[in-house]
Design a protein around this nucleic acid. Structure first.
Length: 420
RNA sequence: GUGGGCGUAGCCCAGAGGUUUAAGGCGCCAGGUUGUGGCCCUGGAGAUCGAGGGUUCGAAUCCCUCCGUCCACCCCA
């Protein structure tokens, strides 16, 4: 038997309401903030991600779906959204537009990982990018947008964590200090951290192993090493956030898994902080576009996982709005004559913008009525030889138990005139 | 990649070596007298008990291997 591949899942009809809700809120918030939608291909040249995300990262090291296509090109299923957007920015000369260019995207992301709660090999992200300005007002705007989005979904209990990890000016000084701090302590670190020590020292900071935690507690903080420019950038950002009354927690040990981040990094976490719980995150990437071959262009963005959002909506009993069934009809046939006529009756209804379907005439009337009932349709139209001989149908209101025989045109008028 | 739990009908699950021709619930189908749903009642269909191998007179039940799945670690959304 075929089944969906590990770490992938079908989004079944009963869940589509959640997805439409989340997508609609995303589109709405972006319209209000004037971020425009862009859709990039789900696969790109592998090199885009190698250069963009950074060779030492977990994503590049072991999570990319990379393959050679029939033409011999190295292809990667996108493991994140920002690099492709930056590629599109460069490719379409968007630096000629007023800056910053504000974009949003929504679509599948692929990472080869062992699936677990809230973690899939194909998941979906909604993300925004503000490209072309280093002004901290846009860091704040991106966070504001993210916060508004979660607010529009009525998600409760989210916390915003914020940090600044500096720039190429001040990062080396910090790394030196981190290095010498950890140099004398490598004995007490977990094996993973010993490996991280030389590879990506920043990540030492978010190790969860208890023995490492104590080392982290005394470790130097990026914030204390920021250069003047980064320091004032961060100050300004905090000022803007305060001005918008957006609460955040300063987390000096927040680092993110991608190499391209500079200065601002942030993460949004839900109430239930269980292991891998971030629901969204982002930050500034002032060197990414340059690294990808564009002229040096600053940018800042945010992305959030739709599956995790929906999981949180469900946990908080937030339901998508019920679909309107007032203009929905289920055609039921009482006998062979009615069964023959059902498709064209449904078609006539549809011409009047009434959604209509019918049951198999193989089923008993009772069973057809059961289907009509469970379909959620407000109306059942019942047809058989008796009605057809009089050029009429029976219109039954499924919310109660009243029904009446009338011509189809009259039934249509009643249905269209109906209110809940 | 590492560790642990679990795999019985579409779904939830009982059964823990022989009274199992594998139970129950949801869902599905058919009925409960004449062409009608939602509640109730009755009946029915639906399971090579994840796959393969082994132990045994006898295995859904014990052992091994594989596969799948879930959870955790790593890391992220």
């Amino acid at each position: 038997m075929f089944r969906a591949l590990r770490g992938t899942e079908d989004i079944l009809p009963q869940d589509q309401g959640y997805w439409r809700l989340v997508e609609a809120r995303a589109a709405e918030v972006c319209r209000l903030f004037q971020y425009n939608r862009i859709d990039t291909p789900v696969f790109e040249q592998a090199d885009l991600f190698l250069r963009g995300i950074g060779e030492g990262t977990d994503i590049v090291e072991k999570q990319m779906y990379t393959f050679e296509d029939r033409g011999g090109d190295r292809i990667t299923l996108r493991p994140e959204g920002t690099a492709p957007i930056c590629r599109a920015y460069i490719e379409h000369g968007m630096h000629n537009q007023p800056q910053p260019v504000r974009l949003y995207y929504l679509g599948p992301i692929f990472r080869y990982e062992r699936p677990q709660k809230g973690r899939l090999r194909q998941h979906h992200q909604f993300g925004v990018e503000s490209i072309g300005s280093a002004d901290p007002v846009f860091d704040a705007q991106v966070i504001d947008l993210a916060w508004s989005f979660y607010g529009a979904l009525q998600l409760k209990g989210l916390t915003l964590q914020l940090n600044s990890i500096g720039c190429p000016e001040c990062r080396p000084g910090y790394l030196d200090s981190l290095n010498s701090y950890y140099a004398g302590r490598s004995e007490s670190l977990c094996p993973d951290c010993r490996a991280r020590f030389s590879r990506s020292p920043l990540r030492l900071l978010d190790c969860k192993v208890a023995s490492c935690q104590s080392a982290v507690a005394g470790a130097p903080r990026t914030l204390d090493f920021l250069c003047q420019a980064c320091r004032s950038h961060f100050q300004d950002l905090r000022g803007y956030l305060d001005g918008r009354a957006i609460c955040y927690e300063l987390n000096p040990y927040l680092v993110r898994g991608l190499d391209y981040y500079t200065r601002t990094v942030f993460e949004i976490q839900p109430v239930e902080v269980r292991g891998q719980s971030a629901i969204g995150g982002g930050g500034r990437y002032d060197n990414l576009i340059g690294q990808l071959g564009g002229r040096p262009t600053p940018g800042v963005g945010f992305a959030t996982g739709l599956e995790r959002i929906i999981a949180n909506l469900k946990e908080q009993d937030i339901m998508p709005p019920a679909t309107q069934a007032n203009r929905q009809v289920f055609v039921v046939s009482a006998d062979e004559i009615g069964r023959r006529k059902a498709p064209s009756i449904a078609a006539t209804l549809r011409q009047d913008d009434i959604s209509a379907t019918f049951a198999s005439g193989d089923l008993s009337l009772k069973s057809q009525m059961r289907q009509a009932s469970s379909s959620g349709s407000r109306w059942a139209v019942i047809v058989g030889s008796t009605e057809l001989s009089r050029d009429s149908v029976v219109l039954r209101d499924m919310t109660g138990a009243s029904q009446e025989e009338m011509p189809l045109t009259e039934a249509i008028r009643r249905i269209k005139g109906s209110i809940s």
